[in-house]
Amino acid sequence: MQEHSEVVPVLRTWLLGLLSPAEGEALEQRLITDADAFEEIALVEQELIDQYLSGQLSEKERAGFESFFMNSEDRQRQFKIAKAFRSYVEREDPSGHRVQPVRQVEPRQSARQSATNIQATNQRYPVPVQTSFLATLNTYRIPVMAAVVVLSVSVSWIAYRSIRGTDGPALAVVLEPATHTREGGSALQQVNLPPNVRVLELHAKVPKRGSASYKATLVDADGNELVSSEMPRVDTSNSEADVIVVSVAVERLAAGQYQMNVDASYSGGPTESAASYRFVIVPAARS
């Protein structure tokens, strides 16, 4: 296939159903006689799906994508595969730095396990490293109420031991929505990072929202965005809540406070904040 960069913008417009009939006919005549230009179709289709998933399409393109491009079962199947691929790439390289793939305890079990499944797996395969847990944080509401709210937030710690010796394990942490007290205080969840863990998987539950799609961002205390995932993995198996899964390389996480935000949006509708989760990373003492 030779370079056909000049045909790409027209192809995009055509695939989105936004080309005029005359321009469309001119393009199609070229496609049927020019093998190289024709081969570009599949490439541009894939790029459109990827760009849709990463929120890179303009509003007009997005509308064409949703109303025209996706009006085919083949494309919908391609879309699902693209989402799986995106999740896979994210899992393999969450930070942009190369890390070894995180193997699951059960090779055939889905990577999008629910928190419940992870716990069940952990019970079947006891993981010696990760028995630790949780923290409490006392939040003091200043003068008037003079109440001290101490909230314990239960956290499930689960870790996978790599099946293959060279791979670093991942630590899955189930986050709970930031708990606000009536007095305005909030409880922070504490995450202890064992020294051998290379990837932290954050599992964030949000109440089910029908056909919403989610965006997840992870920011540090200074507001720096560490992870921004337009299409995070979503476990929908729980009847009451969706579990949003975001992976981040541990080497990017210094000790300190972090916040994970999940926004929900509906097709063609507004985006709203679904939940936010604040937690503190505490590196474990090295033995």
Binding site: S110, G210, A212, T236
Partner: peptide, 11 residues
Amino acid sequence: TADLDDYEAEF
């Protein structure tokens, strides 16, 4: 979008 969220088999 939600119909296409279950891509576990694909994954």
